[in-house]
């Protein structure tokens, strides 16, 4: 029985009058990769963004219900959203490295959180993070070059390294491979598999093969509802809901 890192209960999300998420309850495992799948506009990205309160920045967005990180309510008034986002990191659909050097991209998070005491400690953090993201060998000779000069796949791995650098507990990935070519995608998937166990990982994807390859748990969203949630193998081979069945066999979406 895997232990739960995050759990959501009866979560509703509204954009103004429009309801984007309806009564979603879900548990995210500590050791597993959890995939959110579903057709465009089904609310899977919206739900992902409630897990580190990135939806707070969207004007008119309102979240109801209870989401816990290790039993703490992250929407409680005493929860510090800055610290929450340090504990629950995020990687976006489009690689968004800062227009600074590769080194500075990684060092930014540890610096603002005061995680490295001195220059050599920072060097160590940068090197370790790049190693874990599988990028060290490709960039070790050009750490002072701009992060935006890397290829798309390298940029995305840089963003993952940047998220790892602050040593989060959960990493949320919002369609991290949708802007990448198949080779870069394969590298990211490999990386996700390697990171599994060290961080709880939640990945939103449009690519069902990808969900099947990298995740152990899969949640299928449709029209803002959580239709089915279970072991990835079960969802893909033996779904209990007809809507899930229709989606994974390509009937719609």
């Amino acid at each position: 029985m895997a232990s739960h890192k995050m759990s959501a209960r009866d979560v509703n999300v509204f954009y103004g009058e429009k309801q984007a998420i309806r009564n979603v309850s879900i548990d995210v495992d500590k050791e597993n990769v959890t995939a959110f799948i579903g057709p465009s506009g089904c609310g899977k990205s919206t739900f992902l963004r409630t897990l580190n309160r990135m939806n707070d920045t969207v004007v008119g967005c309102r979240t109801e219900g209870r989401i816990e990180l290790d039993g703490e309510d992250i929407y409680a008034s005493e929860m510090d959203v800055v610290l929450l986002r340090a504990r629950v990191g995020m990687v976006f659909q489009k690689p968004n490295p800062f227009p600074k050097s590769i080194y500075e991209n990684i060092a930014y998070g540890p610096r603002i959180h005061g995680l490295a005491e001195n220059k050599s400690a920072m060097d160590h953090v940068v090197e370790t993070s790049l190693h874990r993201a599988g990028l060290w060998n490709e960039v070790k000779d050009r750490l002072q070059e701009s992060g935006t000069a890397l290829s798309g796949g390298q940029q995305q791995r840089l963003c993952i390294a940047r998220a790892i650098a602050v040593d989060p507990e959960v990493i949320l990935m919002d369609e991290p491979c949708s802007a990448l070519d198949p080779i870069a995608t394969a590298k990211i998937e490999e990386l996700i598999t390697e990171l599994r166990g060290r961080f709880a990982i939640v990945i939103v994807t449009h690519n069902m093969q990808q969900a099947a390859r990298v995740s152990q748990r899969t949640a299928f969203f449709h029209l803002g509802e959580l239709v089915e949630y279970g072991a990835t193998a079960d969802i893909f081979t033996n779904p209990t809901q007809t809507r899930t069945q229709d989606y994974i066999t390509g009937r719609y979406g």
Binding site: M54, V82, L83, G89, F98, G109, I112, A163
Partner: peptide
């Protein structure tokens, strides 16, 4: 680009750090 703001916020930067950094 908003993606830069999102990136910094998701790292745990406070709004004022996002603005000035």
């Amino acid at each position: 680009p908003p993606s830069i703001r999102d990136g910094a916020l998701a790292m745990g930067a406070s709004p004022v750090q996002v603005v000035f950094h």
